[in-house]
Design a binder for these strands. Structure first.
Lengths: 257, 257
DNA sequence: ATAATTTGTAACTGGTTTGTAACAGCCATG
DNA sequence: CATGGCTGTTACAAACCAGTTACAAATTAT
């Protein structure tokens, strides 16, 4: 259990209406400056960007989240980028972009032969690297969508409902259907992903709207109320969304599948 | 009807037992020397290599054979490589590698933004270009194999219609026929390929036109409206294309075959 | 070149969703 | 059990989003 101190997790900032893509990107570089530079490029574009300073941290993150593209420095302390490339390539379709300080042609060739998809040399041009990432994301997501085509038709169970994730629709056991709004759906998703764990309003706000929360802000409460209403919570029992006074909300473990 | 005189078609020579791949590659370059050089690299590796000296010849070949990867000189007499890239990218998953004589960074960026997969500058290193081609072939063939899994059933069922993919024609059960435009047809194809899954306007834009979408852009909405009209959706029931507010559109699973 | 078709853009409308404010009820502590 | 902070609820307004139409631009065919 290390690392979370150095691991930088950031979501896109301001242009929240226009989330151009929901792609997840991982930046791996031991230089703080370069890592930050790259991270900020992609945040600008609306990607969900995570970063790590070495291969071990990277692997930890990769094991936990389904990333679309990894930007990987070739020279890393400990396990180097090429080794990681080879490991990643066997057994996943993730997009790999190697980043290096050297114009060295041999590095480039070996990188490509290890199965990297792209190769970018420092100093890099933001526009170029963005174009490459965008192309690669497109391809990877295309592949993923084809692979999982007739998989995961299974809808998720919550309370007495089945959740149709594509339509943002609750399907009642009695045949009733309730349409969730995008906000309600996302809230439910976040609670579902952290089932049994209390989420503070601050955390929820960050995950839902990528913005900060202040003490006078009741929007989360209202959103929870709306979701509860649609889940037909009678405020008495059958309570799925539990209020933790002074802390936040959590989804009762019994609510899951 | 020209060209077949200049079109060079070659297959790997002797080491036929060790055919590393049955990938088809097309080399497009107006310089005989460079074309020959590239062709011989790939023949060595056991690819089926075809070549063309200009965009028109290339298109002729592309229309006839299912290539995996095209190597394209940016500077071509007549229609240039970038234009061809853009045309190829809309409506096919072929791998595109741009080749250029200049180290010009701008060329490279514009190429990538047009949707090229790779970019190689002359003078090129054989080993590098082979590595890139190999990676790209792997990806393209992977995609193809997934794509063709259940595609091409000639006539696809959608709603109360049969879709004649060749003529982009809807054949009604009552004998009625409706002609789709190219855009409407492609939209329907993409929705069909991702049946039951919500596609964001951004994704649709990318698949249809290979360009970005911004929040003020209503062209997808208009296209959907036109397709809906032709599918005779009465906005009430029999609704095949479902709007998911704040997210995108999806084709109802019930619409499929 | 001209005409027809297709596609993109802009404006407007109606509807949905979301944030805010106000107030009422609840909880925890002294 | 009274108080101050926290939460639930409701109503309203602002922001946002989708459908539609008409027209201009671009493309294609004639």
């Amino acid at each position: 259990m290390v690392g979370s101190a150095v691991v930088v997790v950031k979501w896109k900032g301001l242009k929240s209406a226009m989330l151009t893509s929901d792609a997840k990107i991982l930046v791996v570089d031991d230089s703080d400056v370069i890592r930050q530079t790259l991270v900020s490029y992609f945040e600008e574009e609306g990607y969900a960007v995570f970063s790590a300073a070495n291969a071990e941290q990277a692997e930890e993150l990769l094991a936990r989240e389904p990333f679309d593209v990894v930007l990987l420095d070739i020279r890393l302390p400990g396990k180097d980028g090429l080794t990681l490339t080879r490991e990643l390539r066997t057994g996943s379709e993730i997009g790999i972009i190697l980043v290096t300080g050297r114009q060295d042609e041999l590095d480039r060739i070996i990188g490509l032969e290890c199965g990297a998809d792209e190769y970018v040399a420092k100093p890099f041009n933001p526009r170029e690297i963005l174009a490459r990432v965008k192309n690669l994301v497109r391809r990877v997501q295309r592949l993923r969508s084809l692979e999982t085509r007739d998989a995961e038709t299974e809808s998720i169970r919550v309370g007495g409902w089945n959740l149709d994730a594509h339509r943002r629709l609750l399907l009642g056991d009695d045949g009733e259907t309730v349409q969730l709004t995008e906000g309600e759906y996302q809230l439910l998703q976040v609670l579902l992903q952290n089932i049994g764990k209390t989420m503070s309003r601050d955390q929820l706000m960050d995950r839902l709207k990528h913005r900060a929360w202040d003490a006078t802000d009741r929007s989360i409460d209202v959103l929870v109320a709306r979701l509860r209403k649609k889940l037909r919570e009678d405020a008495s029992h059958t309570q799925q969304i539990v209020t933790v006074h002074g802390v936040g909300y959590l989804l009762s473990p019994a609510s899951g599948r």
